[in-house]
Every structure is written in C-alpha cells, then in structure tokens.
Design a protein around this nucleic acid. Structure first.
Lengths: 134, 134
DNA sequence: AACTATATGCCAAAGATTCTCATTTCGGGC
DNA sequence: GCCCGAAATGAGAATCTTTGGCATATAGTT
C-alpha cells in the first residue's frame, strides 16, 4: 500500500508524493526524467510544480525508494527501487533499456573492492550499444 | 609527441588544443571537469575561453583521445584515454578515484550481451563507497 | 607573405536543477 | 470534526553546466 511506503520512510503522506509514487509504480521498466514525471502528471490533469517533482524524487532517493541513474547524455533518470538490484543495458539507437543481474559480476566486484580496502555502498554498471533487432 | 596525436586524429594543431592535452597528460589518474581544465589553464596564465575547453574536450572525445564519465553529481569528468580500458572505484567521502580492470567481469559482460542479442559499443562500471583508510 | 578554412573568445542562450518565499496542506491534539 | 504549528507545495527567480552565434584570430597551404 502506497501511503505506508511513505510513512515507513518518515515522509508525510501528501498528494504530490502519492501521485509521483503512482507514476513510478505504474511504469514497468521505464526510466523517467524528472521532466517526464512532471509532464505525465500534468497530462493526467494533476496540478503540480516541477520543483516539487525534483524535491520529491530526491527525497525518495534519500529514502531508498528510488534509484537515480546517469545514462549518457548527462541528465538523470529515475526508477522505483523494487528491491532487487540490477544493472542496465542501454541502446544508443532507440534508448531502450534492459535490466539484468549477474551473480558472477556481483561477486567479482566485492572481491576487487576487498583487494583495494574499499567498502562498496553502491555501484553502477551500464552497457551501451544496440540490440541486433533494431 | 603531442602535436602528432592531434594530427593523427585529423585535428588542426592549435595552441588551446595543445594546452588542454598537456593538462590531461600531466594529470596522473585525476578526473577533471571542463571547468577544472579551464581553471588550471587560467591559473597557468593561459588565455582561453571556457567554451573552447568544452568544444575541444568534445572533439577529443569524438576522436577517442579522451573519455567522458558521469560520476555521481551529474557533471561530466574527463580523463585521457591511455589505451587500456578500465573501470572506476569512487570514494563518496574524498572523491578519490581508483581504476581497475577485471577480465572475468569483462568476459561476463560479453556473455550477457550475447544472450540478449546486444552489441556492446562501450560500458561503464563504477563502484561507489569509501576506502577503509580515510 | 597572402589566402582560405578553421578555430577561438566572448557573450548570449538553452537546459537542468535548486532556491526563495508566500501560501497551502498534513497530522496531532482538543 | 476543527484548530494549530510544522512541513510541503507552487511559481518564478536564480544557479550551474553546457552549447550556440558571430566577429576576429590562426593554422596550414600556395
């Protein structure tokens, strides 16, 4: 249940926050820009400010509800944190994004960090290229 | 030799380009922002425009002389392409960056791409965290 | 040395994100 | 259910990073 997600992370349950959460939940696998979320809400007839979208997304990120990525191009995209960590494969042709996980890679990362006396708090692995069928 | 690097990639050998190349060559392992490069040049008494720095860095990237990364924070950083591909370990505490390569990971990436009918043209792997001794 | 295509500098402009502040809304207590 | 203080929101200004336009300067050639 939505409102509980917010309460659980210590955020007041407000309309804009609920709406933004819904947008993110509804989007299977899509990676939205703050602007995207804003537009989607406007199109849905909601009254919301772009600044609020940015603020809320940042709060969600801090609360661990959302992940922020920087794909090529530089602007940030957001996606709901559905618990399971994953990496990305991004088509530079179509922008299509596929997610994946590989235990061997995850394990090697830990191993490498250990060798360097490094404690990993997060990581990003993005493969750029294109799909054969596009 | 510097000027040849430029000629080889079809760029006219100009003073600003040489200076920027020098800055990048001199920086062992540092990752500079366009602004950083600009400041370093100004501090060194060079007369250069920020726009030129951006233009040149972009040209260098297109020519394969430098790599552009997007670490957390959103702004782009550049480093000289010294031939060998590598990944990064970034300390969120100090900003320190260590480079590494792991054949097993590289190989798994190819394998995963293959399974998804994806042709990799580039990739980014960044581990975020902090070093034990800081 | 002269010529032409390119590159550069400066400054304006665009895009993304953050800040300010007056107004509105949430959540708890009465 | 209504009131109050704290927190959140909306609108627009402000900031930061990056790009574009244009007149001038420069590299490379003849």
């Amino acid at each position: 249940m939505n409102s509980n997600d917010l309460k659980n992370v210590g955020l007041k349950v407000t309309l804009p926050r609920m709406r933004i959460l819904e947008i993110l939940e509804r989007s299977e696998g899509e990676h939205y820009t703050a602007e995207d979320v804003y537009r989607l809400l406007l199109d849905a007839g909601e009254e919301i400010g772009l600044a609020t979208v940015y603020r809320v997304l940042t709060q969600f990120e801090a609360a661990g509800l959302v992940n922020r990525h920087h794909f090529e191009g530089g602007h940030a995209v957001f996606e709901l944190n559905r618990g399971s960590h994953h990496d990305h494969m991004v088509s530079l042709k179509s922008g299509k994004v596929v997610e994946f996980v590989d235990d061997i890679i995850e394990e090697r990362q830990q191993q490498i960090a250990k060798e360097h006396g490094f404690k990993i708090t997060g990581h990003t692995l993005i493969l750029y290229g294109e799909f054969e069928d596009e």
